[in-house]
Design a protein around this nucleic acid. Structure first.
Lengths: 153, 153
DNA sequence: GCTTAATTGCAACTCGTTTGCAACATCGGC
DNA sequence: GCCGATGTTGCAAACGAGTTGCAATTAAGC
């Protein structure tokens, strides 16, 4: 099914990833391409470990040490190529997207599935932060619940 | 200044803490009293380590192992005597208050000071979660910014 | 006071993440 | 295309928060 076409679009992502790396002043290496490719094709978010497993097992030959994953993710995050998500379970997750990709997640307490919420309620509703006097305020907001699949049982 | 009076109010807190423990079916021990006392007098929130230092150094003789702090906090949280806060730095914090004490925090990025926000904007404005279909939805919301003391410099 | 079950301390352990260092690959210049 | 400087990687060892096993202790009911 449209294998050629798929391969082509995959190639296209790779070019984007290369550009992103070069623009950021980073060397283009297989692990880095593999990580960016993965995050571009499946949006995740993924833990470093999940990324490691997927990248190492993929045919795309991005196999590398877990440490490399951590170091790449740290660089990518510093350059806003990816965003870090923290859902309060012991580990961190990453997804593609820079500062413009502001959004929030809802996580199923049972199956841990993660959905993205398109709008940011905090900015939407221009929530007031009354007497705080803080400047340069950002926020982190996550929702937790039971997803339809889980409460169907 | 008003040392007697202060001592009295401190004693009063201790009685509350004892009651809370007994009502919860927990044995009344020095470490537990010390932890609850601390959280009642300084609202924190504090990391387990901060609690350990304060409790161990206080004259109130709640000195104990860090492990004991962890175990007490876990029990207290399970019984909703305290709330867990997660600000996404490597560790967790606790503050007094049960389910009814729902509120959020704003954390200074520079000095790490934590202020409490009285209202919950999410519940206030009855934010809609459109097409998610999730049930039993709760949320976590924290704000980060630069506090007046820090941007004054 | 005595018994029993809960609690504590200590040491060892887990797990996510970081760091030191030597080997290696990328990229710009020749 | 080769070469050297610099950035990147792998491996092993370290790290820090939190957990667990077990024996010793202590609170609470009798």
């Amino acid at each position: 099914m449209a294998t050629k076409h798929h391969a082509h679009s995959h190639k296209h992502e790779k070019v984007d990833a290369e550009d992103a790396l070069r623009n950021a002043g980073l060397k283009v290496t297989k692990p880095r391409l593999a990580i960016l490719d993965l995050l571009a094709s499946e949006h995740g978010p993924f833990t470093p470990d999940e990324i490691h497993v997927r990248v190492t097992q993929s045919k795309a030959a991005g196999a590398c040490d877990l440490v490399t994953i951590y170091r790449c993710l740290a660089k990518f995050e510093g350059l806003s190529l990816i965003n870090r998500c923290d859902f309060g379970d012991g580990t961190v997750r990453y997804e593609l997207g820079g500062k413009d990709h502001h959004h929030h997640h809802i996580i199923c307490r049972l199956c841990k599935r993660v959905d993205s919420l398109p709008d940011c309620p905090v900015e939407d509703k221009s929530i007031k932060l009354p007497k705080t006097g803080f400047r340069n305020v950002s926020h982190r907001l996550e929702f937790f619940g039971i997803c339809p699949d889980c409460y169907a049982d």
